[in-house]
């Protein structure tokens, strides 16, 4: 019996090691395949762009001015020899201010909506109503109320970003493990202690999901917002290139907006991986 057990243990151990090594290799292969497919997809977009502007369009036509063959060099030139980096900084600053305000408003409201059914019932239709109004449609009113400059942009960005954060936070509160709340009750926690020590850390993952959704919306809303009443930022820069008839620079800026948005989303995703509980 003892002998049998020994041999079976010996036989099992290397098998398990082989399986886990093979498992790791399979995971690595799957990742490599995904990466290759993703890069292939991106390359395809560039090829289609090139075909549209260089192969199908006639030489010297209007469309040909938006070619990647001129846009990519223009991008490097702009980043190195123009004030485009300042416009980028300006735009990113607006994103983070808008996100900050949205967090300051959305998280406490979300906690209240998720914690109290009365608040949820009272606010849910109003929030769904407000959420479905395009933030851009408030633009004229925002400019009239807040004047020309950064303030109306902050308002519009906050208004756009607050909903995903609020709704995710509320969903997070409803998804809290009731055993954690029972534990905090059994330790005679005050409501404030339960909030800070159990609820807030417990909903952090959901808040970060909301932040990721919010960043996506913010980046989309930002560019049109910057096309009105300000003299800096990527939205302003696009109109500026149009007015200067610098079409390769216009395309270069469009390209840069895509790259920065992609980077912001990756950042939000890695924040989620680092901070989300158990993640």
């Amino acid at each position: 019996m003892t002998h049998q057990q020994t041999t079976s243990t010996v036989a099992v151990a290397p098998a398990a090691a082989v399986v886990s090594a093979a498992g790791r290799a399979a995971v690595g292969r799957a990742f490599a395949v995904r990466l290759a497919l993703g890069l292939g997809g991106l390359a395809l977009v560039f090829v289609l762009w090139w075909i549209g502007t260089d192969v199908l369009a006639q030489k010297g036509s209007f469309l040909a001015r938006f070619s990647p063959l001129t846009a990519v060099p223009a991008l490097f030139d702009l980043l190195l020899h123009s004030d485009l980096p300042l416009h980028v900084v300006m735009s990113l600053q607006r994103i983070f201010v808008g996100l900050g305000f949205a967090l300051l408003i959305g998280v406490p409201l979300g906690l209240a909506v998720g914690s109290f059914q009365v608040v949820e019932a009272a606010t849910s239709p109003a929030f769904q109503f407000l959420r479905m109004i395009s933030p851009l449609s408030w633009m004229p009113i925002a400019v009239m109320v807040f004047g020309v400059g950064d303030k109306p942009i902050y308002f519009l960005l906050t208004f756009a970003a607050v909903w995903p954060i609020l709704l995710s936070t509320a969903a997070g509160v409803r998804a809290l493990d009731p055993r954690w709340l029972q534990l905090s009750r059994s330790l005679a926690a005050t409501p404030l202690e339960t909030l800070w020590r159990v609820v807030v850390p417990g909903v952090l993952g959901h808040v970060l999901t909301g932040v990721r959704l919010a960043i996506g919306i913010l980046w989309i809303v930002l560019v049109p917002c910057e096309m009105l009443g300000v003299s800096a930022g990527l939205g302003y820069f696009i109109l500026d290139t149009r007015d200067r008839l610098a079409y390769s620079e216009l395309m270069a800026t469009v390209l840069l907006i895509g790259i920065l948005g992609f980077a912001l989303d990756s950042l939000a995703r890695s924040l989620y991986r680092i901070w989300a509980p158990g993640g």
Partner: peptide, 13 residues
């Protein structure tokens, strides 16, 4: 008076 439940209820973070 300390209470232990069937589930350990540890906080994952």
């Amino acid at each position: 008076v300390a209470v232990a439940f069937q589930d350990p209820s540890l906080l994952p973070w």
